[in-house]
């Protein structure tokens, strides 16, 4: 609106100027300055100052109309120019102020965003920190549990080692005791064996003495042989023991029972009269009869055998009656004592 008024004024003045004096440099500058100011931001941002500039310019123009060359016209034009420049400066300042306000607002906004983001980051960081702390605590707890577990394992191992040591010591002690007992027992057994052997030998000697008094006793490679005459024990051609023979056998049995630890072989022998098979059977039956009697008297059955030898092992000539009588016999072979502790 002011620009329009100004243009009308300028046109009006120009029409006048055509038939009047040319305007001064000050007035031309004032017009230009006002135009520049009115076209700038001052129109909107510094309207009061621009209005003052307009009034100053109007005064200058009026003065110019009255007295174009006067100092007053020049001074008024100068003042109008300065007021126009002042309006322009204030307009520019308003623009700068708006820019500053906008920048400050942007700064505040950005700062607020940063603070907000910072808070959020802080919250996230605290959250992450808590999570990290929780994880760390879990790891620490796990590590502690592992340490406790290892300590427990170590304690168990130590206890097991200690138990093992104790057990080993106990085993060793038991072993030592067992060895000592074994040594002692072995010594006792040896002593007992020796004593048994001595006793056995003594009993054997006594038995031999007793047997020698009732029968022929002979030391042979197969053992001690006690020979009983067949005529004393059996009737001719019979295998049943005579009652008188039982008395004899009782004496023999008593002697043998003192050495019952020995194995006995009862062998039956005949003369050469009669068939060989008959003699074989007869000798077998007679040997068994003697064996059975000895068993009956208490000699262990598993330590006594009966063997019929028939006429095959004569000890005398079968041609003479005495020889045949000697060949009819029962031999009780007392085997040699085996080397043992029994």
């Amino acid at each position: 609106m002011k620009t329009k008024q100004f243009l009308i004024l300028v046109t009006f003045v120009a029409l006048f100027a055509g038939c009047a004096t040319a305007p001064s440099t000050e007035l031309i500058s004032a017009r230009s300055a006002y135009q520049q100011a009115s076209e700038g931001p001052a129109g909107q941002l510094a309207p009061a100052e621009l209005h003052k500039a307009h009034e100053a310019l109007v005064l200058a123009e009026e003065s110019f109309k009255k007295d174009p060359d006067s100092y007053k016209t020049k001074d008024l034009a100068y003042v109008a120019q300065r007021k126009s420049e002042n309006a322009g400066a204030l307009g520019a300042m308003a623009v700068d102020k708006a820019s500053k306000d906008k920048a400050n607002a942007d700064f505040q906004k950005k700062q607020t965003e940063l603070v907000k983001q910072g808070k959020q980051d802080l919250i996230d960081s605290e959250k992450q920190g808590k999570q990290d702390l929780s994880d760390s605590e879990k790891r620490t707890a796990a590590a502690q549990a592992e340490l406790d577990k290892r300590a427990a394992v170590q304690a168990t191992k130590d206890k097991a080692d200690a138990d093992f040591q104790r057990q080993q010591a106990a085993v060793q002690a038991n072993k030592d005791k067992a060895d000592a007992d074994f040594q002692k027992k072995q010594t006792e057994i040896v002593q007992q064996g020796k004593q048994d052997l001595i006793d056995s030998e003594k009993r054997t000697a006594e038995a031999l003495t007793a047997l020698a008094a009732i029968a022929a006793v002979k030391e042979e490679e197969r053992g001690l042989v006690v020979t009983l005459s067949g005529s004393v024990l059996f009737r001719s051609g019979k295998s049943a023991l005579l009652s008188s023979a039982q008395v004899k056998l009782d004496q023999v049995a008593n002697a043998l029972l003192s050495v019952r630890a020995r194995n006995l072989i009862v062998e039956g022998h005949t003369d050469s009269q009669g068939s060989e098979s008959y003699n074989q059977g007869l000798s077998q039956r007679r040997a068994e009869a003697v064996r059975d009697y000895l068993v009956q008297r208490g000699y262990p059955s598993d330590r006594i055998q009966a063997r019929g030898k028939g006429e095959g092992n004569p000890i005398a000539d079968n041609a003479s009656p005495e020889g045949r009588a000697n060949n009819r016999r029962v031999e009780i072979i007392i085997e040699r004592m085996q080397t043992s502790n029994q």
């Binding site: 400066a89 204030l90 300042m93 700068d96 820019s99 500053k100 920048a103 400050n104 700064f107 950005k110």
Partner: peptide, 15 residues
């Protein structure tokens, strides 16, 4: 105006 301009430039530089 100069002060305002400087302040505006400073504010924009800050931003």
């Amino acid at each position: 105006g100069d002060a305002e301009r400087l302040e505006a430039e400073k504010a924009m530089a800050q931003v």
